[in-house]
Simulated scan of single mutants.
Amino acid sequence: MKITIDQDKCVASGQCVMSAMNVFDQRDEDGIAILLDPTPPAELADDVRQAAAVCPALAIHVEE
């Protein structure tokens, strides 16, 4: 699994962090999402998929 974030689309809602806090975080200055782990372990796959599904801007892309 490989994760990317389109930071230009991100609206800083924080839904990704709430879904997968070991994979996503937010910049302090503007809340835009950042990746902590672009290739998370398999046990986090469901959390990452949930984060992508709840992103209001559809800024998270998951490659299986």
Results as ranks from 00 to 15, higher is better:
R27S: 04
R27H: 05
D28V: 12
D28N: 08
D28M: 12
E29T: 11
E29H: 09
E29C: 00
E29D: 15
E29K: 07
E29Y: 10
D30F: 10
D30Y: 07
D30T: 10
D30G: 11
G31A: 03
G31W: 07
I32G: 02
I32A: 04
I32H: 00
I32K: 12
I32E: 02
A33D: 02
A33F: 00
A33I: 01
A33H: 01
A33W: 01
I34T: 15
I34E: 12
I34F: 03
L35E: 08
L35P: 07
L35N: 06
L35I: 03
L35D: 06
L36I: 14
L36V: 12
L36K: 14
D37C: 09
D37N: 13
D37W: 06
D37V: 10
P38W: 01
P38G: 02
T39N: 15
T39K: 13
T39H: 13
P40S: 02
P40I: 04
P40V: 00
P40F: 02
P40W: 05
P40Q: 06
P41W: 01
P41N: 05
P41L: 01
A42E: 15
E43K: 03
E43D: 15
L44G: 10
L44W: 11
L44I: 01
L44F: 08
L44R: 09
A45Y: 07
A45W: 03
A45H: 13
A45S: 15
A45D: 14
A45L: 12
A45R: 12
A45P: 03
V48Q: 04
V48A: 09
R49K: 15
Q50S: 12
Q50P: 00
Q50D: 14
Q50G: 01
Q50M: 14
A51W: 00
A52W: 09
A53M: 13
A53L: 13
A53R: 06
A53V: 05
V54E: 14
C55K: 07
C55Y: 11
A57H: 07
A57R: 08
A59V: 10
A59P: 08
A59D: 04
A59G: 08
A59S: 15
A59C: 15
